[in-house]
Design a protein around this nucleic acid. Structure first.
Lengths: 178, 178
DNA sequence: GTCTATAAAAAGATAGAC
DNA sequence: GTCTATCTTTTTATAGAC
């Protein structure tokens, strides 16, 4: 399953065939359909895998006492993934974009939920810092991450992540608590 | 051709069949292959269409005397497209993401070039304003646009574009010239 | 140049042996 | 539960009449 999520991230949903998944998991094609009734079910599973990864990260960051340090830890986690982001984009962002193009019944909304999960966690940190409009700040921070990932990917330039990451860290430090 | 680019934007490259294009242009399928040797050629043409649209916009903005006003005009143009952005994402950004997933010979690099075109124009405006690190500022502005488009799309929430657009306008106003 | 019909390939899905 | 073989559908692409 972890392997499947990685292949989907690399190749995209539409270009990933069941045969690709089978090869990655080192099982025959027919076997895949024993675990997943359809390709759509497999995509849902890949999405769950991203949710799980996000939960692991936020659980780890929640150990930190200062909300500001949690947010800075988040940015550092993003930057540490600069090479994979430059090569394949943000996993959640690329998946959300692709699922949006599908006319299947509500699978696209599922991707939005993962993004919401991230936004909500970030908003909570800003709220704990006592800053005004924590939801707006969350949009700005997560939006900046999605944007820098896309640019790093389009330009094939991992350093975009370093540069924008440093700017975000400085920005977080500059915010005055109430 | 304009119709083709729109369909590709709405459905994505992979999910757009030649039949879809033919229907949009109101011609039979076989006809499409008279104008484009392959689907890849058609994608290249769609990309050129985006470049053309970008040229039209920057030409118009170049009429403005003040570089800062040009940049604000750019942001306003983005926000004015909020509904289409919330529904289908930024045309250039979504296309760049999708083409990146393909292993075709260098088609993905073409998408990067369109993004570069936009970044270069924005950087030039910051440069004319006499601001330090105009390339970094361009990354921040264009990245913010890509990010807000992706979030508006993932959340199906056009108001994200209004909110972040207003923030970007205020940011542009706040930058002190040398 | 335009259209219809059809070939060729790829991918999703299933049947059934083991 | 696992694997092979195969069916079905979809889509790209072409051949050839008009």
């Amino acid at each position: 399953m972890v392997a499947a999520a990685e292949v989907v991230h690399r190749q995209g949903v539409e270009r990933t065939t069941i045969a690709d998944i089978a090869r990655a998991a080192d099982v025959p094609v027919g076997n895949v359909y024993y675990y997943f009734k359809s390709k759509d079910e497999l995509v849902v599973a890949a999405l769950s895998e991203h949710t799980r990864q996000l939960d692991l990260l936020t659980d780890r960051l929640n150990q930190l006492a200062d909300p500001r340090e949690r947010l800075k830890g988040l940015v550092e986690a993003w930057v540490s993934q600069r090479d994979v982001a430059a090569r394949y984009g943000c996993p959640t962002g690329t998946l959300a974009m692709e699922l949006d193009k599908r006319d299947d019944g509500g699978l696209d909304a599922e991707a939005g939920k993962v993004m919401r999960l991230l936004l909500d966690w970030v908003e909570q940190q800003f709220r704990e810092l006592g800053l005004p409009e924590p939801d707006g700040l969350a949009l700005t921070l997560v939006g900046a991450y999605q944007g820098m990932s896309l640019l790093a990917n389009a330009l094939r330039e991992p350093r975009v992540m370093d540069r924008e990451g440093a700017r975000l860290l400085a920005w977080l430090d500059s915010l005055e608590v109430a």
